[in-house]
Design a protein around this nucleic acid. Sequence first.
DNA 1: GTCTATAAATCGATAGAC
DNA 2: GTCTATCGATTTATAGAC
Lengths: 200, 200
Amino acid sequence: MTVPTPSLPAHDNPTVVRLFEAAADAFADKGFHATTTRDIASRAGLSPAGVYVHFASKEDLLFQLSRVGHEGARDALAAAAAEANSPTEALSEVISTFAQWHAEQYQVARIVQYEFRHLSPDHQREVLTLRREIDGVVEGIITEGVASGEFCVEDTRVTALAALSLVVDVARWYHPGVRRTPEDIGADYGRLVLRLVGAS
Amino acid sequence: MTVPTPSLPAHDNPTVVRLFEAAADAFADKGFHATTTRDIASRAGLSPAGVYVHFASKEDLLFQLSRVGHEGARDALAAAAAEANSPTEALSEVISTFAQWHAEQYQVARIVQYEFRHLSPDHQREVLTLRREIDGVVEGIITEGVASGEFCVEDTRVTALAALSLVVDVARWYHPGVRRTPEDIGADYGRLVLRLVGAS
DNA sequence: GTCTATAAATCGATAGAC
DNA sequence: GTCTATCGATTTATAGAC
């Protein structure tokens, strides 16, 4: 049994946690470049210089948010896939879980999906590795379902990308106050994706 | 017969056209706030001050791009819908056309979909009106298809949003050099969306 | 209508006291 | 580890010559 990777750098430090939440709010709300380090610091109750005691730069904050966000999504996905007894159940559960995560964590999801290009090239590569793990889970389930005869698709990659598009776009339009709850959205997309793969 | 609204302010002025294209490239590539007016001006072959002869501000450039982009998408959609003889044909054609547009015009599409929040409140309202026209076309077709018995959906609004998510997300992942052509993508999504509405 | 030059404000990040 | 103060670079936008 290995010790799980800490989800945050120094996640037991309350000031670091506050900075993390402040940056997540600000980046999701205004975007990376429209957010100032002063903005983040004041939301966290610190002076402008306080940020740099805990993070090397504004880009470092974005990177840590992206990394932790991806890891959280990947873990939620893997847990959902592990419990399933068939490709149909697995796909429905994984998409449902992922869609719900995109709604509940819509700030982090937005940063993960839409602020990616503002990471340094090295950090882009690292985050891309995590993203490919996630994409691979969905594509793998569809491949299994086609092999077992449960699914009927023209192109596995095209269908996997379409399924992920449904989910990712939740981060664009979701905000607290929309009609549906995150649970509703997850359930809706769990059903819709079974139509996409010809399983219902 | 009314004269069509010019798609560009002073669209017959070659300098304005060059500025427009330079801004579209830059905003799509780096985002609104990461793009400098110097960057736009130099891409258009002008001095930093040259921008302000033709546009009031950087935000004005973003607004004009968003407005013209939305109008182009809406017109392409309306033309596709007008030619169809059934809800099934209409939905397939509209989604196919819209997806193809998002790939071919992926720079403008990206600006339209992801830089919206950087518009002024007044300009957000104006662009939102255009966007609701587009959403209404898709939702209207699905409503017709349900009424005629061609489609079978649980919730019309949820399904319309899902169909649009497929299309909108093209602007996030598409770039020249991906495996499929814009025509391929349009054809793929025209078929996939018929599955979403239970028509195939 | 385009230029050079620059104003005026703001940014990310650092220095050094405590 | 947090602060005040500020550096140095960069930004949007304007002034005024041509």
